[in-house]
Design a protein around this nucleic acid. Structure first.
Length: 838
RNA sequence: GCCCGGGUGGCGAAACGGGUAGACGCGAGGGACUUAAAAUCCCUUUCCCGCAAGGGAGUCCCAGUUCGAGUCUGGGCCCGGGCACCA
């Protein structure tokens, strides 16, 4: 006879109505403030951050929910472990995406975004996240972007924001500048249009000043390895040398009459050097020509009269080409300038060419070409019949390995030695690099340098939907930053926000807005009409969450000290370089400015995987997009959450399959029934208690490792044992299981917890204590191998030694028949395996 | 081309620092309970040979290390993602 702890309606045997209990608990959490974090008083603060979403009109994507659920489980688990957990959420609502959508549907983004946010918040609340909504923020809120502008001013004050005319990627469709990061294979990452080259005055942040630190800190950050690797590649450190090649018979007339250098009226001239960057100074004896980028400032100076026309024509052609097709096309083109420079190693004159395979934005915009040992240079040399000199010999003594004639560039660097390199012949590559740079340095021809691939961050956007850059141009004073007391520079509500082809923002058409008086002299001023990149909005949002109640500071010092850096950050790897790098940079700047006491914003970062469907990325065009609402309606949020976490390893993602959800729902149904029907009479079965404690251990280990799928599997196993043979659970067998499931299925856990007679939230009830004694097995199953082949298993008391196991094994005829004769060797792994070698 | 992931049943996936490959779930087949269904519970489900007991093979491929390899080493193939004329 089982004694039911609680009466359930006779008509409703299962009694589990997810819709009803989820509504009930969401309401109750709100009434009781269950998810509110006491930021000032909480013991052991734990900041569980997730990447905030862009509130699209389509609503929440399963990918969002997958990400947030994973973070929520982690956060709830930390809370159950006794931390005061802060789990805020906000919206990254500025940017081209919203603006384009608004244009498409003919709505103003200022009207559209709040609606989208309302819809998102509704969907997110249904998912049962432990979010403290009192700290919600939106980057489009003037109370927020006031501080984004403040941030710009901090960088400006520190000389880290500057304006320059630069070749930029221009999307002719979106009519805006794109960061290099937003150009994918020459096309706009957003609309796919072919990106063009334009020259515009742009604001930049000097992130390159921080390249070394951004790279070095990666060595100690507790981040997903894949993310760190992506950042390393992006920063792209190259160790090499800068080498000066003196241009022959050409001197630069400085045109300065100076007393210091001699008789007055004398014109001083200096020899003209072309500086190149190379990572292979060891091959300098094989440098047979130089190549300058077409935009290189010295091109005109080195061009001879005979070549002037050809050079000018080539420069015109490459300027007309967009940055993209220039990079996409690998066909070599180029023109000889007519001049020669001296190779400082050989003393020989070598021709100077210009070619667009050399990029002005990398290194010095000039290279020494070593066709024998570089693919591109080889191709170019073949095409224009330039000399190819071999200076690195292969590892063997075969004649072919040191043949001066090469059919293809020789790129090997391991186990090779120099040849044709004077006193350096015979040296290995690494040694030669050092020795040659030292030798050249002694004569003032070279110095070792570190070069980064990373470029300064262009933050100007010629668009409407963003925070205006807080700068005023005054006719008298020039560039004047908006005083902090005048912030925010509010984005005006403009009916016509459509971008045009002028290369300026739509704000440049709003004279009433941009016409201002100069804050410095009171004269005529004009506002900067560009807005800043959305990545600036998201580069500091984590600092704002704890301080959303403060209007006078971007982030309160005490709260920041208490809650930051972020303990755990979870997000998609699509932001591995951009957002994560920019927010690290901004944090470092704030650290250097004395605003925060740490230079890395996220102690721990984990990238979650991606949810695909039927093996393909979800997309509207494929028609395989999952709308979370439907699934929550049909199965309940608890089932949906748990299912998302069960379909694969969290850090890898998985394949969404409708069929499998039923299995997770069945699991929750069975848990429900077992708890509702649980008895208090008698005592729990020790075998079940053992399984329970093994489960407590497994879940406690798996959740912090984000191994959610295996944690769920373990709980399923546990419930299978509890219910084996239609047995009725004892209350003590299921009560801890309710606590274990709570991070995954919070509503049903609360309901069951309440029905078990508890008054407080299950999230304030702590975590079940694991007892190793209760989890221990009395018998160990030992696998018995003979010569490494599995021949059977034997049961021995736990902790048995080799002798006991061997005796048991030999007593088994099925095993003994293979193990004939005296064993040559016996391998014993306690509690696991016995291998008899005969 | 370079840098990250990853290749395991019909399917999604497990497997602690080498130690019973396929836990858990889906799907499929059979059974118990039921007037019936749902739910629940029990059994089977990598492949091959065999009535069975049992035996053999098996984690993308080829070598190697080891008493023992999904796991480690070398080489190769395939898939996903990122970067790419970066000197």
């Amino acid at each position: 006879m089982t004694e039911s702890i609680h009466q359930t309606p006779a008509q409703e045997p299962a009694g589990y109505d997810p819709a009803a209990i989820e509504r009930k608990w969401q309401d109750r959490w709100e009434e009781r403030g269950t998810n509110h974090t006491d930021l000032a008083a909480g013991a052991r603060p734990f900041y569980a951050l997730m990447m905030f979403p862009y509130p699209s009109a389509e609503g929440l994507h399963v990918g969002n929910l997958f990400a947030f659920t994973g973070n929520d489980i982690y956060g709830r688990f930390q809370r159950l472990q006794g931390h005061t957990v802060f789990e805020p959420l906000g919206f990254d609502a500025f940017g081209i995406h919203s603006e384009n959508f608004a244009l498409k549907v003919g709505t103003h983004p200022a009207d559209l975004i709040p609606r989208n946010i309302d819809n998102f918040r509704r969907q997110l609340k249904r998912a049962g996240l432990m979010v403290d909504w009192r700290h919600e923020l939106s980057t489009t809120d003037p109370a927020y972007y006031k501080w984004t502008q403040w941030l710009f001013l901090q960088l400006y004050k520190r000389g880290l924001a500057y304006k320059r005319r630069a070749a930029v990627n221009w999307c002719p469709n979106d009519k805006t500048v794109l960061a290099n990061e937003q150009v994918i294979a020459g096309e706009c990452e957003r609309c796919g249009a072919k990106v063009e080259q334009r020259f515009l005055e742009q604001w930049f942040f000097r992130i390159t000043d921080y390249a070394g630190r951004l790279l070095d800190n990666l060595s100690w950050l507790d981040w997903s390895e894949s993310t760190k690797q992506a950042q390393r590649n992006w920063i792209g450190r190259s160790d090499g040398a800068e080498v000066a090649f003196r241009v022959q018979d050409l001197e630069e007339f400085t045109g300065t009459a100076t007393i210091a250098s001699g008789a007055s009226g004398e014109f001083v001239s200096e020899p003209l050097d072309i500086r190149v960057f190379t990572t292979r100074p060891d091959t300098i004896f094989g440098a047979t020509y130089l190549v300058l980028a077409p935009e290189h400032p010295l091109v005109d100076a080195v061009t001879t009269d005979e070549q002037r026309e050809a050079i000018a024509e080539y420069k015109r052609a490459s300027a007309a080409q967009d940055l993209v097709s220039r990079k996409v096309s690998k066909e070599k083109t180029g023109v000889f300038t007519g001049s020669f420079a001296v190779n400082p190693a050989t003393g020989h004159p070598i021709p100077i060419w210009i070619a667009d395979y050399v990029l002005m934005e990398y290194g010095t915009g000039a290279i020494m070409a070593v066709p024998g040992h570089d693919e591109r240079d080889f191709e170019f040399a073949k095409l224009f019949d330039l000399p190819i000199v071999r200076v690195v010999a292969g590892p063997s003594t075969q004649p072919a390995d040191s043949s001066p004639v090469l059919d293809e560039p020789f790129l090997e660097t391991d186990n090779v030695r120099l040849m044709n390199s004077g006193e350096f012949n015979g040296l290995g590559v690494m040694t030669a690099k050092q020795r040659i740079v030292d030798w050249l340095a002694q004569h003032g021809h070279a110095r070792g340098v570190v070069n980064y691939r990373l470029h300064d961050w262009c933050i100007s956007r010629q668009r409407y939907w963003g925070p205006p850059i807080p700068i005023i141009y005054c006719e008298k004073c020039g560039t004047v930053p908006v005083p902090e007391s005048d912030l925010p520079v509010e984005l005006p509500y403009v009916e016509d926000f459509k971008p045009d082809d002028t290369g300026t923002s739509p704000l440049a058409r709003v004279e009433s807005w941009y016409r201002v008086t100069c804050p410095s002299c009171g004269g005529v001023g004009r506002r900067e009409t560009d807005v800043s990149d959305t990545f600036l909005d998201s580069a500091w949002y984590f600092l704002r969450y704890p301080s959303t109640d403060y209007d006078d500071v971007p982030f309160d010092r005490e709260l920041t000290k208490r809650w930051l850096p972020v303990n755990s950050y979870i997000g998609g790897n699509e932001h591995a370089v951009l957002h994560l790098l920019y927010s690290r940079f901004i944090t470092m700047v704030l650290h250097d400015a004395g605003q925060v006491g740490f230079e890395e914003p996220y102690r721990k970062f984990r990238a979650h995987g991606m949810i695909i469907r039927e093996g393909a990325k979800m997309s509207k065009s494929r028609g395989n997009v999952v709308n979370p609402d439907e699934y929550v309606d049909r199965w309940g949020a608890d089932t949906f959450r748990t299912y998302l976490m069960f379909l694969g390893p969290y850090e890898e993602g998985g394949d969404f399959r409708d069929q499998s959800i039923a299995g997770v729902r069945r699991f929750l149904d069975r848990l429900w029934s077992s708890v509702i029907e649980a008895t208090t009479s008698g005592s729990p079965d020790p075998l079940v208690v053992r399984k329970l404690h093994q489960t407590i251990r497994k879940v406690s280990d798996d959740v912090p490792a984000l191994s959610y799928n295996t944690a769920i599997a373990a709980m399923m196993e546990c419930i299978n044992v509890i219910r084996r043979g239609e047995r009725t659970a004892h209350r003590a067998e299921v009560e801890p299981l309710v606590q274990l499931i709570a991070p995954f299925a919070p509503h049903v856990a609360e309901e069951l917890w309440e029905r078990l007679g508890h008054r407080e939230s299950v999230f304030d009830a702590g975590w079940p204590v694991f007892d190793p004694a209760l989890a221990a097995e009395d018998l160990a199953t030992i696998v018995v191998q003979v010569n490494g082949k599995m021949r059977g298993t034997v049961q021995v008391p736990s902790g048995s030694g080799q002798d006991v196991a061997l005796e048991a094994a030999m007593a088994d005829s099925g095993i003994a028949k293979f193990a004939v004769g005296t064993p040559k060797k016996v391998i014993f792994v306690p509690g696991r395996l016995l291998n008899i070698v005969v």
